[in-house]
Structures are given as structure tokens and as C-alpha cells.
Design a protein around this nucleic acid. Structure first.
Lengths: 114, 114
DNA sequence: TGACAATATGCGAAACTACTAATATAAGCG
DNA sequence: CGCTTATATTAGTAGTTTCGCATATTGTCA
């Protein structure tokens, strides 16, 4: 496989590699099409921050925005993304024991660093 | 879904978010269990570099190393990873047109920046 | 048109990532 | 034991990502 293809894939993974963006994608997967205002209201984030994360997802074409009057409605461009996240959950469950260990570490980082 | 779980997923995606690590995972998926030396020989990389990338994958428990005498043999810890990469390829094909545009950008970055 | 609402963009600081080169550890062999 | 091979780790540096804040853009409505 050519390296450019691997870089394409890596680019997509990078776009997914942020908790906020995962939350956003899950939201879009579950809600269909939502305006930006719903995203930051529901996830309790700053508007600018959401806009920046949306820009990342847009750059990789993972989401599309449809302008309607004053607002922009976003949705997933391909349901396969939802499936990738599903596989991820499956992976988590299949490796529950180890995953829980990792989770513990993650929580500790969070509480000890901050 | 709790935020720590999203951070868990994001962490996995981050581990996948590098062309070299994708190449390594694909290699392990196709070859089964291989010693480190095969990895850097086949992918034409520095030994230290491969070792660092392996450390990233190990930290997320995506691969396991089995020590045998002098060498360490690595393999994928869960075949589901291969499936995630497969889905990724499917995604690429389903969105060929747009993906090719992105690929073009990626290649340009490569040649213009370097 | 001016004022307001929704979204996007630019900027600077802090945190994180990846690379190379050097060094450390550990096993095997004479 | 000392030497060699395989792998891991450390340190320094360059590049990238993320955030908050300020500002720009675009659309609506009076």
C-alpha cells in the first residue's frame, strides 16, 4: 500500500483522536442533523471551540454543513463513521479487563495533572 | 457516555493516527507475529524509531510483545484492529471521489513542505 | 441601513508529538 | 568474563495541536 494512502488513513484517525470530536460525532450519529448551537449547548462547550473542532472534521470531510438561513446544520457525511465507533465500543468490551486498567490510568492523569 | 470513555477511544485513535504505525499494524495483521528487526527492515525505518512507535502501540495495548531469547516478537492483540482498518479502506472506497481530492492535498503538502 | 444572532477565523501561549543521535539493558556466545 | 546482536530508553529540538479570547463574516429583521 502506498504511503499516501496510509497518510490519508492516519489523517482520519487524527481527526477522530480527540474526546470532544468523538462526542460531537456521536451526537451527530444519534441526532442526525443538528445546528452548531445545539452542539455546544448539549456538550457544554465554548462556541469557538466547537467551531474549531468542526473545522477539523470538515477538513477531513467527516461532516458536512448545510447552511439554512442564519444557522449551519451539521451531519455525518458517511454512516460508516458510526460503524467505526461501534467497532471501537466492541473492541472496548472485548478487552474489558485491560481497557478498564487503561481507563483507570486515564482518570488518574486527569485528576492528578489538573 | 462518560468523558473518560471518550478519552479512552480518542487515545486509541491517536495511537492509530500515524502513517508509520498504520504500516506497522498492517504488517502485523498480514504477517502474524514478527520480530522487531523484520519491522524496521521491511518498512525501511530506523530501529529506534520503530521501537518508539511500538511503545505507543503497547501503551494502548494494541500490540503485545513476546520475548524469545534475543528478540521480541510482536503481534496484534485483537484482530478487531484489522477490521477497523478494513472499515477505513471501505470508507476510502465509498468516498473515492472526495478521498482522492484529499489525497492530492496530502501529496502536495508532502512535496511542497519538504 | 443598523443592530442583532449564529458561526467562523486569527492569534499567542501551553502542552504534546516525532524525529535523530546517543546511550542503556539484556540475551547469547566464545 | 568481554563482545556482539536485538531492543528499549533518554534527551534535545522542531513541529503540531489545543485552548481562550478577540474579531470577522454572514444572514435576518426592523
Amino acid at each position: 500500500m502506498p504511503d499516501s494512502l496510509r497518510r490519508f488513513k492516519a489523517g482520519i484517525f487524527r481527526a477522530l483522536a480527540h474526546p470532544t470530536r468523538i462526542a460531537m460525532i456521536e451526537l451527530l450519529r444519534d441526532q442526525g442533523e443538528v445546528p452548531v448551537s445545539s452542539i455546544y449547548a448539549r456538550l457544554d462547550l465554548e462556541q469557538a471551540n466547537v467551531s474549531q473542532h468542526l473545522a477539523v472534521l470538515r477538513a477531513k470531510q467527516l461532516v458536512v454543513g448545510r447552511k439554512d438561513g442564519n444557522q449551519v446544520f451539521y451531519s455525518l457525511r458517511d454512516p460508516i463513521l458510526g460503524r467505526i465507533l461501534d467497532l471501537m465500543r466492541q473492541y472496548f468490551q472485548a478487552n474489558l479487563k485491560e481497557a478498564l486498567e487503561l481507563l483507570k490510568d486515564i482518570k488518574q492523569e486527569r485528576t492528578s495533572t489538573k
